[in-house]
Design a protein around this nucleic acid. Structure first.
Lengths: 348, 348
DNA sequence: CTGAAAGCGCTTACAG
DNA sequence: CTGAAAGCGCTTACAG
């Protein structure tokens, strides 16, 4: 609730910089607003001389059409919304960079909203009112809302996750399964490891499940039986992974390698192992996933999987824009991963 | 340019999810749109029973006011724009987290625009049309535009930089000078260093100049004469800093410590020094600035300055909102820094 | 090729 | 306390 004098002040201030309107441009060019609109949008032919005068008037008045007015009439916002649970982590900046670049490239604005704790706090959310489409990270929108958006046919693209039961939005993510396979194959074939732990990431992350799929398949293809004792929850988190390994050590679980959920988790694994006096990679090899910037700085440097994160962001926008403008998109895009061999696996 | 059938499709699609309007709510509640507006905004008293019916109608129709319509009439967008040159680096996520949280908290939307290469490409920029105020990083808006915004009285807050000549926007940044002083004092007092190199960051970054100021003052207060030979350009960049130190080594410059422009630069310094067979911190102590996450992982772990980056983001938003809503803000806010002692300075 | 008019979904004086 | 009407700045049939 603003006070009266504050309101007064704000209105006054606003007048100071009220920009030129299409009416003023029209008046200056001696034409109707409709004509100005037409040269603005190239929506109908205008005789060259008229167009010339309009363009001059636009330039002289430094005119830009008011987005809100356009939104109202066109029923589109020209904005793409990005919903994510938290702004942090090593892979967020390249992802955002890719998204931002492509959004801009496509002529849209980017609205971002980090859902944080207050998933249901009812604060001005990003939806069909203020965006033309949404890019959604895992854990940032609940299933009910996703269902609602699906029902009304609103364009949504899912990042690193698949659709909940009963609905299907297009998704883009990376080759988690084959990435995991490369890692496990390497551990088995190059370093003779057979008791490989897999530390699961968060339940809701599709990524983690696909990595587990790759882990299992790789074991199977080498005739190594799957041992449930070797699979534990470690999150995508340094501390949680550290605790998980500590516990396995206490429980006396026998293992000679750890495939951490991601690089953050791998950092925790290494800490726990070092603390317990285990040699890495001598006693236990460790591999991660993501190739975050510090992977090469930790000791031993981390063998991991690199995903084209920035490209994931770009592709997500491309598909969403296609969905918005053409009504269809690729149902599923998997970007390829590559293995980055460093020392934590046992390589020199 | 869309094809005709695409346009047709889009219009049809849109109808599918056109949300309820205030008129429909009014009809359902048996009142006028004006009354609905009044209960929506609490802008005038409404008899309880009427209000009750209106609220029910709103709930039943799942009504939310259309932002564009509000914008048009209120002449405010309810959005804050964030302009930055590139989305990357270690300190971007916490900064954005702080900004996003506080923006949301203040009831605004966040529009972000990374200016990247195309500073003047003329793509839908963030300005007075689509935002109520702007948070501006160094190197993302040119001086002419800043002057224009200042002239029309548009709310702008500068981050980590001061206003160009002739105008004055409020700024928020960190205590760069005293941070640098803490570092240099420590190097001199605890480790007896006297030949301390300062690697400058980018020209345009106010931060870097204040750090240099602190460097000089600390030397002076210890009676160590300033030696221009010890100051070189190293950027805020690993590779550039690495090259700079290499060159100094080749030139035979004598030094026993390096104060890098920031932690990224410090990483490059360490690489160059190691490559040249110098012992760190034995031969040369190295200190950085920022305390990015990997500072503790590099070897030796980095002594550096920690700035409350997330808080900088929050404070920036608070000041901008104050400027938007009240017409004034603190001219300059400096958030305190603290020294993080690790091993690269010579401490155990 | 161009203009007058209606309308997008709201809010706010102005009456009553 | 409430409604009818005007208007925010645009675009788009509809005539001409």
């Amino acid at each position: 609730m603003k006070t009266f004098s504050e309101k007064l002040f704000m209105n006054e201030l606003r007048k100071k910089y009220r920009p030129a309107t299409i009416i003023e441009v029209a008046r200056r060019a001696g034409v109707s607003p409709a004509t100005v609109s037409r040269v603005l949008n190239g929506t109908a032919a205008v005789v060259p001389e008229t167009e010339q005068r309009v363009r001059e008037a636009i330039a002289e008045l430094n005119f830009t059409p008011h987005p809100a007015a356009r939104q109202l009439i066109n029923q589109r916002t020209n904005a793409i919304g990005l919903l994510l649970p938290e702004i942090s982590g090593e892979f967020f900046p390249p992802m955002l960079r890719g998204i931002e670049a492509e959004v801009r490239n496509s002529g849209y604005d980017l609205l971002i909203h980090s859902t944080q704790e207050n998933l249901n706090s009812g604060r001005r959310p990003l939806r069909e009112h203020n965006t033309d489409g949404l890019i959604v990270f895992p854990e940032s929108v609940d299933d009910a809302e996703l269902h609602r958006l699906f029902k009304i046919g609103f364009p949504v693209l899912l990042l690193h996750q698949s659709s909940p039961e009963g609905i299907s939005f297009p998704i883009v993510t990376v080759e988690n399964k084959s990435g995991a396979e490369m890692l496990i194959n390497h551990l088995i074939e190059a370093h003779g490891r057979r008791r490989i732990v897999y530390l699961q990431g968060p339940e809701s992350h599709q990524d983690s499940r696909w990595r587990e799929r790759g882990y299992r398949d790789a074991l199977e293809s080498h005739g190594i039986p799957f041992d449930p004792e070797l699979v534990e929850y470690g999150g995508f988190d340094e501390a949680e992974a550290c605790d998980a390994i500590r516990q396995m050590l206490i429980d006396g679980v026998d293992f000679d390698a750890v495939f951490a959920g991601d690089d953050d988790a791998a950092t925790g694994v290494i800490a726990a192992l070092k603390q317990a006096g285990r040699d890495i990679p001598g006693d236990v090899a460790v591999v991660g996933f993501d190739d975050v910037p510090f992977s090469r700085f930790i000791s031993p440097s981390l063998t991991t999987i690199r995903a084209p994160i920035e490209q994931v962001g770009r592709e997500a926008v491309k598909q969403l824009v296609s969905l918005i403008e053409k009504g269809h998109a690729e149902p599923e895009i998997l970007l390829p991963t590559e293995i980055i061999i460093r020392q934590s696996c046992g390589c020199p």
